[in-house]
Design a protein around this nucleic acid. Sequence first.
DNA 1: AGTATGATTGCGGGTTCCCGCATATTGGGT
DNA 2: ACCCAATATGCGGGAACCCGCAATCATACT
Lengths: 241, 241
Amino acid sequence: MKVLIVEDDPLHRSYLNEQVRAALPECTAVIEATDGLEAEQLAREHNTAHVVMDLQMSKRNGIEAARTIWREKPDRRILFWSNYSDEAYVRGVSRIVPNGAAYGYVLKSAADERLKLALRSIFIENQCVIDNEVRGMQQRSFSPNIGLTEAEYEILMDIALGMTDRAIAQRRHLSLRSVQNRLTQIYGKLDIYQVSSSQHDDGTFNLRARAVTEAMLRKLLNYGALERAEADLKTWLSERG
Amino acid sequence: MKVLIVEDDPLHRSYLNEQVRAALPECTAVIEATDGLEAEQLAREHNTAHVVMDLQMSKRNGIEAARTIWREKPDRRILFWSNYSDEAYVRGVSRIVPNGAAYGYVLKSAADERLKLALRSIFIENQCVIDNEVRGMQQRSFSPNIGLTEAEYEILMDIALGMTDRAIAQRRHLSLRSVQNRLTQIYGKLDIYQVSSSQHDDGTFNLRARAVTEAMLRKLLNYGALERAEADLKTWLSERG
DNA sequence: AGTATGATTGCGGGTTCCCGCATATTGGGT
DNA sequence: ACCCAATATGCGGGAACCCGCAATCATACT
């Protein structure tokens, strides 16, 4: 068994290496990549079926890398090892995991033992292991009336990218009014309103901009998500001609 | 000499501890804090004049912590040890460093030797040590016609918070039109325009929202900066009544 | 003083956004 | 087939945004 480690922080990388070797005596080789791009190449070259990887990396983030790694071979097993359980990450991961694939999501704050157990469960037993905290986030965020619908989330990303209602309508194949309806939904769920301390005279907030801020503060959105969305937008723009 | 280490990652913390002890034989005690809040308390209790600290921490980020630490005793020496040289961090730091205070900014990617040298320079020689990469960023971002003015940056933060033009005008004591002028400046410097691939018919971007996105992608803005700005905004809102 | 440069303000217009109201359309569930 | 809830669409109006133009104010340089 070969294991591919993807992690840009040297200290964390060597720690991972150590843990992998300790937890998996059947592991014959450990390959290390320091960013997502390198990971994609090495996974291809060595044809590794077992990957442990960080989500937040400088060059290409873990979600991007995982997407292409899984696209080339959907039965690979990936253990995500991340500092955060932000909704942006959780959503990002659950969107790309192939049907029936075994994967894991463990927080870096977890104890050594938990990491080792997860490694064995996923790589040997072929079972999913999702950190409790992450699982909780997942359920909360996917429950209707609390979390955002996938459709709403999509529109949220679009306004976060700075698109106009009309452009969004065009991109998502909706009428202008529908886009605005969804926006209203989003504003409601994020508790956005035109606040003004005394009466309802002035309105100190621009709803659309405020929604993005609120989403960032609540960690529905983060830099990585924005980066990916921006890339998708670019391809859509060029296709549209 | 006592040294206070502030770092939420255990691996990095113990590495720092090791390096500090190696670089500074005159150091009699090393105190460790795992987040900004704890750092503020420990700095007060132990009255330490020498601090090494990460910028990105969960509970209270390094800039917040440094601000209060310096406010209580401006001649303390702080070495910032960060993963990134994002403009948001650099601006955040240079805004809070007291007049004439010695401080440092070293990237985590730097070699051991560089870190040790910085420790000695700042704590023993009382000299500023700014990583070259950071210094470059600083110069680029403060040069007019390329980087944003402090005034422009202020307004950028305001629209990132989702404020309306009128609210911004009120907050910054400007006329509505001046705010809009500044916004136009910002749009120009960030290369924002109403893009539409073929003619200039539709306009797929909402300038104000797009500016925020662009700023995030360029790392003029990041989560920490937004968090701080949001806190400031809250106090302003309550003061305004 | 004189002038030049740039920031600030006011005005007016065109566009986009936000939303209330009313009318389709869709997709189950019985 | 029927109904119900949720979603999608159209219309219209008030508010906010974007910006060109022009007048005023500030500051610095000769």
